[in-house]
Amino acid sequence: MNVAIRALDGPIRAEAGIPRRVLALLSTGVSKGPKEQVDWADLIGRVASTGDREAFKRLFEHFAPRIKGLMLRAGCSADEAEEIAQSALIAVWRKASQFDPATAGAAAWIFTIARNLRIDMFRRRARANRLGGTSELPDTPDPAESADVVISRVQDAARIASAITRLSAEQSMVVRLSFIEEKPHPDIASLLGIPLGTVKSRIRLAMNRLRDILDEQA
């Protein structure tokens, strides 16, 4: 199971059954420098167990610019994206012991941290606008989960990792553009050179396909 999970973390993804064409589509930029195999989950573990500053620095150098890049694509200002990237890495340091490699890939875990920080930032701003000043606000709690759900998360992790590899390259792409990079459908249509109606139907098909794959594994 760990192999399947690890596969999501680093450059060894291609060996885990994700077709190379998906990887080609998923990576937008030219990759920087030589590909090295880094076990991000292991680095997070070292931060958790010994407060390993070197391990943390490598996590920072890898993930902070990517969080900033993703947040910019999703519509944040440069200042907001910078703040979310820095705060996310602070949270990685502080919450490292909560990371469970059996339930989530390192990148997915770090994404959820950045996502929650962005939610909190927007809410704080909305509240400040409304009340004419800053105000205390509880942080977005990590999703509360009942014990049986947590258990099934562990059992499900490998299945989920394999499920998303079964989406076609086109389906992964529209899901990413629409939900994660938050591009409006017309923008996706022009980016991919397909009609707007095709964007909508492809998203719908991808959603149904993902649900079907997960259901059939359950």
């Binding site: 998923l26 610019p65 993703l70 989530a104 996502r115």
Partner: peptide, 22 residues
């Protein structure tokens, strides 16, 4: 499970996105 699958896809997107210097 469905939400987790989307989070995994988001993790892949995070790995693949063009880094922007902090």
């Amino acid at each position: 499970r469905f939400v987790q699958a989307i989070e995994q896809l988001a993790g892949l997107a995070l790995e693949a996105v063009e880094p922007v210097p902090v």
